[in-house]
């Protein structure tokens, strides 16, 4: 995660709880699965989200190219950098900030088409995930269609690393404890989440 907020794409479509961002394949090194993004709206409001899906579509040409014995570098670069093959990034909303106040509720309204999406700075990640009592986890746990365990592990890995260097080494433990509390009546889900968290490696 870099220290500054980087533009990663623009909004394709959204609902009150999630959105899909389009970005160029060449910019795909910026967003990461489980990474936190922010979508500034007007009047000092910005939505925080978590990348839960990155989808690379194919088309006829791509399908044709893979039948070739080898794909030369120029063609590879052309397809990555030029061609209008959409890379779609799925983001679920986990909260918002209004006039500097962070809330773990869903934003009052979704962002609009072509709104810009940025990565969150470490400061923003610390401020959001360290605020309150992990209320934002609800939004992830509510979504049975997501790879929850992996998403949570990726998020905890990234945010935990930031907290570690920002003076809260116990953050991972705290968030894990909260997950146990939230999921302790669902043995299977909890165990899969904890197994994933068990694979986290913070340095």
């Amino acid at each position: 995660m870099t220290n500054s907020s980087l533009h990663i794409g623009r909004l394709l479509r959204s609902t009150t709880s999630d959105c899909v961002i389009g970005c160029r394949a060449s910019e795909l090194n910026l967003p990461a699965f489980g990474g936190m993004v922010r979508i500034p709206l007007a009047e000092g409001t910005q939505i925080f989200g978590l990348i839960h899906n990155i989808q690379i579509e194919d088309d006829g040409l791509i399908r044709q190219l893979i039948t070739s014995d080898n794909v030369p570098p120029d063609v590879l670069l052309d397809n990555r950098n030029n061609r209008n093959v959409p890379v779609e990034i799925g983001v679920i909303f986990i909260g918002y900030q209004q006039d500097g106040v962070i809330s773990h509720l869903l934003p009052p309204r979704p962002p609009l088409s072509l709104d810009e999406i940025f990565t969150c700075t470490p400061q923003e990640v610390v401020a959001f995930t360290g605020n309150g009592r992990f209320g934002y986890l609800r939004h992830i746990l509510r979504r049975d269609d997501l790879p929850q365990a992996e998403l949570l592990a990726a998020h905890i890995q990234q945010a935990g690393q930031i907290h570690l260097t920002h003076g809260r080494p116990d953050w991972v433990e705290a968030v894990t404890r909260e997950l146990v509390t939230l999921l302790r009546d669902d043995y299977d889900r909890l165990m899969s989440v904890l197994s994933a968290i068990g694979d986290i490696n913070l340095s």
């Binding site: 030369p72 570098p73 120029d74 063609v75 670069l77 052309d78 990555r80 950098n81 030029n82």
Partner: peptide, 8 residues
């Protein structure tokens, strides 16, 4: 530029 490492 065929077969180079340059993006068309």
């Amino acid at each position: 530029l065929p077969a180079t490492h340059l993006t068309p």
